[in-house]
Every structure is written in C-alpha cells, then in structure tokens.
C-alpha cells in the first residue's frame, strides 16, 4: 500500500480514456487471443491480494469494516430500518470497488482533485489538514483546512462523492481528538500547507499507527469561537489551560462538570463490538450480492 495511490489513479486514467484510445489498444489484444500456440505469460500483479495483507490493531480493511458503516444511535429501536443500512453499505462498497479511497484520519494531510464545472480545466486540486470525518454511509463528509496567504480556507467533501477524481494522502497522522475544529483558533502554522507539498512515505498497514500526543498552541485572544474550558469533554491536543490562572480553571471545571455525568449514563453508551461482527459478515455477503445485481445490469445495457 506504500505510496501507491498514484498507481491506482493511473489505472483509473486508462479506464477513463476516450473510445479511440481504447480501440487503438484493442487489435493487439485480439492477436494474442487468436494465436493458439503462443500464450502470453501473466504479468505479476503488483496489487497485494486481500488475504496477504495484514492489518494492525486500530486499522481495518475498508472493504469489510469502516467507521462510516456504523449506523447512528437512534432510540427507540423501531425508528431505524436495517434494510436501508444494508442498501447504503452496498453502495459504499460499489464506490470503494470503483475508486480507491485511501485510509486517513482527522489530523492527516490530504490532497483532493475534484470535478468542477467552473474551473478552467474542469477539475481543481486542494490540499489541507483534515478537521473532521463524520456521518453514516454515503452521507459521510470530511473537511479540509488550509491557510493560503494568511486566509483560512475550509472545504467540505463527501467521502463517497463520485466527483472526487483523485485522493492522495500526503502525510498520515492520527490525533487523539477526532474533532479538530479548534485549529481555527490555533496558531495558523498548523494548517499552512504548501499546495505543492510532496507526499511522505506511508506506513504499511501491518504497522500500528502512533497517536499524535502533542499540544497545540491556541491564539492569545480570549475570543475563541468556542469556549473550550467550559465544555465537556475537553479537547486533548489543544493546550487551552496555559491561557488561564489556576483559580479560573477551577471555576471553569464547574461548567464542564455539569455535562460530565454523561460518561456514567448507561443509556448513552453505544456498544459497537457486537455490531462490528455483524457488519463484517454482512459486507462479505454484500460482495456476491453486488456482483449478482450488476451482472443483470450489464445484460440489459449490452
């Protein structure tokens, strides 16, 4: 999986070639088929098969399990429909088969090229740090933030949106927090990313990722967008404590403690361990389901 995203994009590019280019390739293929004596040796496939790849703890095979496949917690239980979840996951798998969506987390740096009808070349590239990744199934969205000429820019994309032509992970990083929206109030150096940044080497999937445990400096100004000292749970990677005196912090803990009872509320706990096994078993079955459904589609079109 190392640094191979450009290779996948190349294979996608060949598929999306115009018809003339495909026809130019076609006669060579026919010749090799007709000559019975000569058999072309099979090329060694650079792609590692799924059985060979091993995933370390905390990293999953996206074809089988992903964070987006977990449905939101809805109560009462008869207000949720399992068939809808399955149909949506099948569509997610269809997209993942057609397009390689790389693994990334909030905090890592990602570059995205998108089809845009207003752009001069009908496509546009943007890179930035991922602030959050949220939502279920096809509705999953992620936000990129970059500071260009001293101006912060945020763009939100659908993770499964087919308008994404190319996704590149420039630097894979995993922070303790999953919501990094406090970077808006932090020092802009964390989000200033060179638009021509070269991708760093990605760690293989068998290696466990180390969490980013450093503290981010927040701005001096007390007018933040959100009062981090008064809410629960407090962010881990943001160092807001240095802005306050001890007495002020004790007082602000009172506010955060008003919400901290939630961790003892059993009704709010969302246990996913059983659900995860069900989803993995379902996604294995979904593979054959999709093949069956799409085979009928092709017959109709051809």
């Amino acid at each position: 999986m190392m640094n191979k995203s450009w290779l996948f994009s190349l294979s996608r590019w060949t598929q999306s070639l115009s018809k003339e280019a495909k026809c130019a390739r076609a006669p060579i293929l026919h010749l090799s088929k007709r000559s019975s004596a000569f058999k072309a040796p099979t090329r060694p496939d650079l792609k590692t098969t799924e059985s060979e790849t091993t995933y370390a703890k905390g990293r999953e095979n996206p074809m089988l399990f992903c964070e987006e496949y977990i449905p939101p917690q809805v109560q009462p239980d008869w207000h949720r429909n399992k068939l809808k979840y399955r149909l949506e996951r099948m569509d997610c798998l269809r997209r993942r088969k057609a397009f390689n969506i790389p693994e990334f987390y909030p905090g890592s740096i990602v570059a995205v090229t998108v089809a845009d009808k207003h752009a001069p070349g009908k496509s546009i590239r943007f890179n930035g740090r991922v602030l959050y990744k949220d939502g279920f199934g096809l509705g999953c969205k992620f936000a990129l933030r970059n500071v260009i000429d001293g101006e912060g820019i945020e763009v939100v994309y659908h993770l499964y949106g087919p308008y994404i032509q190319k996704m590149e992970v420039l630097h894979l990083e995993k922070w303790v927090d999953t919501d990094l929206r406090y970077l808006r109030d932090a020092d802009p150096s964390y989000c200033t990313i060179d638009p021509d940044m070269q991708p760093k080497a990605l760690p293989p999937t068998s290696v466990e990722l180390e969490l980013f445990r450093e503290r981010v400096k927040l701005n001096k100004s007390p007018r933040w967008q959100f009062q981090y000292q008064k809410h629960w749970p407090p962010p881990y990677n943001a160092d807001f404590q240095s802005h306050f005196l001890e007495d002020e912090l004790i007082e602000s803990e009172r506010f955060s403690a008003m919400e901290s009872w939630r961790k003892y509320d059993i009704c709010r706990h969302y246990d996913v361990t059983e659900m995860k096994e069900e989803i993995v078993a379902e996604m294995k079955a979904n593979k054959s389901r999709i093949e069956k459904a799409d085979s009928t589609l092709k017959q109709e079109t051809s």
Binding site: R94, A98, A115, K117, K122, S123, Y160, Y163
Partner: peptide, 15 residues
C-alpha cells in the same frame, strides 16, 4: 443518475 459502480465523474472540457 450516476451509478456507484462507475468510475468517478470527468466533465467534458468546453475549451
């Protein structure tokens, strides 16, 4: 409607 098993969208260039 775009089918999810199709490759991603490439808009035709007008230039």
């Amino acid at each position: 409607v775009h089918r999810m098993n199709d490759p991603s969208i490439i808009l035709p260039s007008t230039e």
